[in-house]
Nucleic acid binder design. Structure first.
Lengths: 155, 155
DNA sequence: TATTGTTATACTCTATAACTATA
DNA sequence: TATAGTTATAGAGTATAACAATA
């Protein structure tokens, strides 16, 4: 007999997390590097705010960016106005690496969803990820005191 | 204006992965340790099959179990029949640690979902995780040639 | 003084390759 | 020989504490 289907929300999230690692591994990319690429691609300012957005320490940002710079995916440049700040930008290689990562993740996640019984459930599952994306955006906005685009101004 | 809402499925999954790490950190537990506890709690046989189920190498299993044993959460015992095999079991401390981990994850994930606009969407999001749990079960079953409990025998 | 980012250090997870013990 | 598990080794991510450079 197969195992009893045990599925706490935590277990499901933790399993998905491992699938992310495995999907990115062939690109020689860690989840931390992938998240960093995404944030830099979004034009995020500088190291300090990256640490906050990625929920990691400042030295972690340095370490992850170091590897990406060494690989030629990211470039550092001292800001002219405030020489303490270091602007980060993707190189062309970085952009194509990010594109490959997105595709690898999309494929793996789609393949998992495709195991569901019918196409309706598959769309439900994929659609729910957008819902989670929105929830994550709002959660981050609350933590950082930012504003969410779909919400009106606070009272 | 807030950032454009960018939400590839990969990005969403990778962000959730980081939330799992952060939720477990106060318990001094890594996602890898959590996944191992869950598998051992389910009575999984031995090291080799754990590696397959967790999609990691055999030495990784050794390393993760080492830490859990040192912490008193897991016990190793040589099998009597085949002395190469090592049976793994949770201690009482391990069980309560796992319980605390489940609760920490549940709380964090629920808090994220609660950011959604209305209760209907919140239930949708939480419900969808069960769907993903099922998809993950089926996906694993296919990879390992096992049988899924809801499916009949193959033709 | 305060802020930005890095260096120093230590620990865990990961993998591959080589090894030991058992079958 | 083959299998189960560990040891050896190396690289990456993480954190805290201490430091450098700039404001």
């Amino acid at each position: 007999m197969a195992e009893l289907s045990y599925s706490s929300v935590g277990w499901t999230a933790a399993r998905l997390a491992r699938h992310v690692e495995v999907a990115l591994a062939p690109l020689d990319l860690s989840p931390a590097q992938y998240r960093m690429l995404v944030q830099i691609a979004r034009g995020t300012d500088a190291s300090s705010s990256l640490a906050q957005k990625l929920a990691v320490s400042a030295p972690s940002v340095t370490a992850v960016v170091d590897v990406l710079v060494q690989r030629g995916a990211v470039e550092r440049a001292h800001s002219a106005e405030d020489r303490r700040r270091i602007a980060l930008a993707l190189t062309d290689d970085g952009r194509s690496l990010l594109g490959a990562a997105e595709e690898a993740l999309r494929e793996r996640i789609q393949a998992i969803a495709d195991e569901l019984a019918d196409e309706g459930l598959v769309s439900d599952a994929i659609g729910a990820l957008s819902l989670w994306g929105e929830a994550l955006d709002r959660s981050r906005a609350r933590r950082h005191g930012e504003r969410v685009n779909t919400a009106g101004p606070p009272p």
